[in-house]
Design a protein around this nucleic acid. Sequence first.
RNA 1: GCCGAAGUGGUGAAAUGGUAGACACGCUGGUCUUAGGAACCAGUACUUCACAGUGUGUGGGUUCGAGUCCCACCUUCGGUACCA
Length: 938
Amino acid sequence: MGYDFKNIEKKWQAHWAKNQTYKAENNSEKPKYYVLDMFPYPSGAGLHVGHPLGYIASDIYSRYKRHKGFNVLHPQGYDSFGLPAEQYAIQTGQHPAKTTQENINRYRQQLDQMGFSFDWSREVRTSEPNFYKWTQWIFLLLFDHYYCNTADQAKPIAQLIERFEQEGNQSVRAVCSTATPEFTAEEWKSFSSEKQQEILLHYRMAYLSETEVNWCADLGTVLANDEIINGVSERGGFPVTKKKMKQWSMRIGAYAERLLQGLDQIDWSESLKEIQRNWIGKSIGAKVFFQIEGHPKKIEVFTTRPDTIFGVTFMTLAPELDLVQEITPPANQEAVQAYIEETQKRTQRERMADVKNPTGVFTGAYALHPFTQERIPIWIGDYVLADYGTGAVMAVPCGDQRDYDFAKHFDLPIKNIFKNVSIEKEAFTDKGTAVIDHSDFLSGLPYKEAMKKVIDALEKQGCGEGTINYRLRDAIFSRQRYWGEPIPVYYKNKLPQPLALKHLPLNLPEVEKYLPTPEGAPPLGYAKNWAWDTQNEQVVDNSRIDHQTVFPLELNTMPGWAGSSWYFYRYMDAQNTEAFVGKSAVDYWQEVDLYLGGSEHATGHLLYSRFWQKFLYDLGLLPVEEYAKKLINQGMILGTSAFIYRKPGTQTYVSKDQVTDVSLWEPIRVDVNLVNSADELDVAAVRKWQPQFENANFEQTKGVFKVGREVEKMSKSKYNVVNPDEICEQYGADTLRMYEMFLGPIEQAKPWNTAGISGVHNFLKKYWRLFYNEEEWVVNNQEPSKQELKILHETIKKITQDIENFSFNTCVSALMICVNELTSLKTHSTSILSPLTLLLSPFAPHLASEIWSALGNESTLDYVDFPIANEAYLVEDTKTYPVSFNGKMRFTLELSLTLDNAAIQQAVLEDSRTAEYLEGKTPKKWIIVPNKIINIVI
RNA sequence: GCCGAAGUGGUGAAAUGGUAGACACGCUGGUCUUAGGAACCAGUACUUCACAGUGUGUGGGUUCGAGUCCCACCUUCGGUACCA
């Protein structure tokens, strides 16, 4: 009997579970270390080999840190609210809670078999009332706060009310969703309570407003910007249109600058930080106000190029702007209305596809140039976005390509205000070399100086100011779905009223259908018990709604990112019923030391969670402003799909080598598990796999049928999923863990290929044989040789360094080299093999534990100190130097390390081979790098 | 278009500016076996019988010495896109 991984792994998994080996303490003499994985959404498909990659890496690091004497928190949970369970419920009528529970059971089983050192006593599930109670509570806090620009932090709304009562809103610098008219203290007091509430709603961090939203009719819900890819929904790829709806939003825009600045404080990959920087999209420019001819209102535009203000030849407004209706003279109303309606019908994708053909219409109104008082025609066009800047642009066709295209298309004038630049073919957009011309007081100035001067002038005249704009939009928080956190508000006179903490959790009600109601309300519209009784402070039957004491509850639910924006704090104190996290727990753990997850969350979860963190930090509820000190993005493991090729219109399939022109054949995916590593298809198995192949004709070449290959995302629908259960069954979890690390650098995306796994499996068998020869235990107490000690300590040094650098693939190689060398030296000395076992422990914990116990240790190895490399064993007496002439390596020479440079020179000159390369010349220069190389320049 | 990352054998990949291809897969040959999807040994970048030469996307540069540093370009991948 050799390495019996099945029994070993079963044994140790049971041992760890029984002894709660990896339970972390909330106070300890040891230093703390918090390793977090992005928790999974428990999907019905189960885990494939790509999912555990990050968990394996974090588990290796966690285990290493335990060996290094840290109190390690390494929790796991489930992001269990979400669309797939709901879609499944719509199809089958099964309650999402039921399928979610089943999926979680399956996930847990799969996770357990891989030997992760999770502290399951802290498990969280976002769909559990005792968890979402606190998600709802955070929502209430957001509702109850506004963003004060003076203090640059969130403050209680009560303080804002106080200020309104004392001084009105003229001097209040706060972030506000729409331009609220100014009012005095007296006016504020004279407002009705409803009016006051309405105004306050414009200031709250969580606010309700009529907004243009991304509506996805097929999914029946709105989508956030990060849920749309290339103009279609991320989930399902359905078309997205713009629609006005009353929606909850989160004022993440208030934190734009702090979210940007915070990136400098954290150790995240530069590429990920750059993605967030781009998403936040800070741009520096100016606001300019243009008067409208014969109209009291002004048009406010944002521009990054106020220096080109003398090049303005028209203005363009977003068609959605209310102002458009106001300024359009009756003669143009019809055309303008028609255009507005047309743009609303177009999907985002259609708009994007038409970049080359700008659309728009003249409103008939004119604005006045702030410096020249020239009349500027006002157009509307859908190349101007309603929700960026002010939804209005001053069009400078000579300096902006879009304005240029628009002007060319509608035959509008183009005025060149750049010195010595031709704008015959395209706009001139280079700021670096621009010199302004034909621009009154700006003429002759380069970009930078013109910027300064024009902003001064604008501010002096009161028709503009320097300003900063961000691309980051406030995040829509309402979802017209069932399977999410209920938003804890009820409506009185159509105004939202928050519940209180003591009323939470507001449990998700039962519904008869998971679809929108016939009236178009979200699924919660089907709930029978979904009204709030303000007197008894409880949820009651809808039939009792009287709008006096019983009110309707909110029908929208929260988006997927709500629960995931704070879950990592819940792990610190998962059972707490008094607070989202206890004070002492958060004081102890502080923040996440290492966060592992995919970079696909860069503009979603990883931004929203930073936003909530900063908000809760402002309230003094959390101790740090950034929750994840270090973040590593594991690369995705891709699938290698297999294709067979069908003659169009027939049941004939040919082997890949007969396909010359792929376009003449229909590629059809087949299950990769029916193909061997030489790309040969098991034809008999395919016939059984799907009925369509049962009687098909497979044209083989020389008795084999080859498939075509393509690397793409691993997914059930592409039949390219490799299941970790089967790998564990065949090779064991330790082999799977090490092989996934061995595949390549952790941050890199790579296709899965099972073929190489035998190398890692052989390594573990080889390691086993250091201890057992057949049945016999061969470890002894012999004094290790100098050579053996050197091998061991070199390996310790390398492994320690590489783990610290998260270079786990080279760790595996180093262990392989070490075991190979010890095998050839026939080392069985316990003083070598015992530390080696500890080195193996983070990577192959089951096997290492088994050996550790076989070595006679009473306690398990999990908390035993990691070996430390002793430099004394690494010091060498001699060094084999490569000897180079003019940089070209010629031969090697073994020399004592005690020699000085002069002695080395002499030794080289004395070597018989040297003369051959010197060719009678004397060396011009010697370059001797100790321990590295000897180079002689002739 | 803009921003970012990366290009090394048949494959996955190693290389603090110092012998490129460690380690592993695959392949070839061998040992031992009734057998092997077992174990072990040897070989495996390219050209060449060999000697030797050429090789890290392309072209230049710095250096005694460059996969590594600098400049330009090409390709691939990721992000983003009427963002004014």
